[in-house]
């Protein structure tokens, strides 16, 4: 099931462009051109996320729509991202700041909107899991309930979230903060302390290069350099196509196989520099074959 985004804007060009962008990235898009129609669609379509223009038929219509959405019990949990044309000189009767009473939205984006920035922002609020956002929230609720009475639960909850999504999406941290009644900073403090937790979506194939002492002595640094060259990314980065994520790990605990790398679960023992290209291309080929089959 695809995640649904509701687009409320009075500019048909913006609607068209954004719709094309979102649909190409796997979202289902519905749209409305004014606040009233927009709110009706919020109720009837129950989208996972709303992109809302601030200035519709008059300059605060967007803000009022956001308020209406936030006051309705059925719709108040849907994240809203506000999009605005001109920040300055609008002479608004309230401050242009997300998350306030006058403007109950998650984030504010200024036009012109950069496609990749918008997509990234959307991904922080809805996790593309093939499940609806509400279902995700429900899962988080059950998870939290399971751990609620156990002291010291935060690290364990984060582990379960990362296991499920491969990283800890920002939107879920928000939910978690609300459900556990602890500040978001507390959650981020823990996430950023431990190497294991990731804040960004990792690539489809995670390449881990072991840098344990045995691997180091037996040539892991050269293998890492070669991987960087072949993939054109640095440590901890993901390739532009989202296919590979390169990371260095402490020790995989199989020093007899040194130097060792893993690609997702697959282990490659005693890797030499000149094998790197073969290993990477294996997965590229696999991906191509799959794409062709689908096409």
């Amino acid at each position: 099931m695809r995640n649904k985004v509701l687009l409320i804007d009075d500019d048909p060009d913006f609607i068209e462009a954004t719709q094309v962008l979102l649909e190409a990235n796997g979202y289902e898009v519905v749209n409305a051109t004014n606040g009233k129609e927009g709110f009706q669609k919020v109720r009837s379509e129950s989208p996972d996320l709303i992109l809302l223009d601030l200035m519709l038929s008059y300059k605060t219509e967007g803000a009022e729509t956001a308020k209406t959405i936030s006051q309705d019990a059925a719709t108040k949990d849907i994240p809203v991202i506000l999009i605005t044309g001109a920040r300055k000189g609008m002479d608004l009767p309230f401050e242009l700041k997300a998350g306030t009473e006058a403007l109950p939205v998650k984030a504010i984006v200024e036009k012109p909107v950069r496609p990749d920035a918008l997509l990234k922002l959307i991904r922080t609020y809805i996790v593309q899991t093939g499940e609806s956002h509400r279902r995700v929230v429900q899962q988080i609720q059950t998870l939290v309930e399971r751990w609620r009475d156990k002291p010291g639960n935060l690290v364990m909850i984060l582990h379960e979230i990362q296991n499920h999504y491969g990283y800890v999406p920002r939107g879920i941290s928000f939910e978690l903060s609300r459900l556990l009644g602890i500040p978001l900073a507390r959650i981020y403090e823990v996430i950023t302390f431990y190497n294991f937790f990731k804040l960004d979506e990792p690539g489809k194939y995670v390449i881990s290069v072991c840098m344990g002492t045995a691997c180091y002595l037996k040539g892991a640094p050269q293998v890492l350099e070669e991987l960087k060259k072949v993939l054109s990314v640095g440590e901890g980065q993901t390739t532009a196509d989202g296919l590979f994520h390169l990371q260095v790990v402490r020790c995989l605990g199989c020093c007899g196989l040194a130097p060792v790398i893993t690609v997702n679960e697959k282990v490659f023992p005693k890797v030499r520099k000149n094998q790197v290209m073969d290993i990477v291309s294996q997965f590229v080929k696999k991906e191509h074959a799959q794409n062709e089959k689908e096409a």
Partner: peptide, 10 residues
């Protein structure tokens, strides 16, 4: 007994 997981901090 319960398990608690480390998260990669030496």
């Amino acid at each position: 007994l319960e398990i608690r997981l480390g998260a990669g901090a030496f």
